[in-house]
């Protein structure tokens, strides 16, 4: 089952930088959950995973669900928390957009929407599991227990 892992890793030897993961992430976090309607939504759904590159390396990166997560310590509204499965989750209703989490995230894995921080939630509300993994045509993204 795809959802069992608490972290998503990118095997850089397989990542081609096609950005299918970014698209799947944005659609999953849209209201309509379909690409056709998602692109017309306001605000435009934002992906929480980013394809990045340096030298020969291409990597799809997002929240690492750090063991000692700096974003949780920094969050002054109490929105960021460690879930029982070890993942770092975010209660969007509590967020005021102070960007303390952005200030301390070493991976720059948190995005900004107006007054709202957005991060990888491992697609916790989708029983099929992380959509980035499903969408990856080269199986570069993998989920494993940590």
């Amino acid at each position: 089952m795809l959802n069992e892992g608490k972290k998503i890793y990118c095997d850089v030897s397989k990542c081609l930088g096609c950005r299918s993961c970014e698209l799947a992430c944005a659609v999953e976090h849209s209201k309509s959950k379909t690409l056709f309607n998602a692109i017309k939504e306001e605000p435009v759904p934002i992906h929480r995973r980013r394809v990045q590159a340096v030298d020969e390396i291409i990597i799809s990166d997002a929240c690492h669900h750090c063991e000692d997560a700096p974003c949780i310590s920094a969050c002054m509204s109490g929105a960021m928390y460690k879930a029982e499965d070890g993942s770092t989750q975010h209660i969007e209703e509590k967020c005021v957009g102070c960007w303390m989490c952005i200030m301390v995230c070493p991976f720059a894995a948190i995005s900004r929407q107006t007054k709202l921080a957005l991060k990888c939630d491992l697609c916790k509300d989708n029983e099929k599991g992380p959509q980035c993994i499903i969408s990856c045509p080269t199986k570069a993204l993998i989920s494993k227990e940590v």
């Binding site: 700096p70 960007w99 952005i102 995230c105 991976f107 720059a108 995005s111």
Partner: peptide, 10 residues
Amino acid sequence: DVDKSGIFGL
């Protein structure tokens, strides 16, 4: 443009 500040902090 503050989004990358955590990397500088690291």
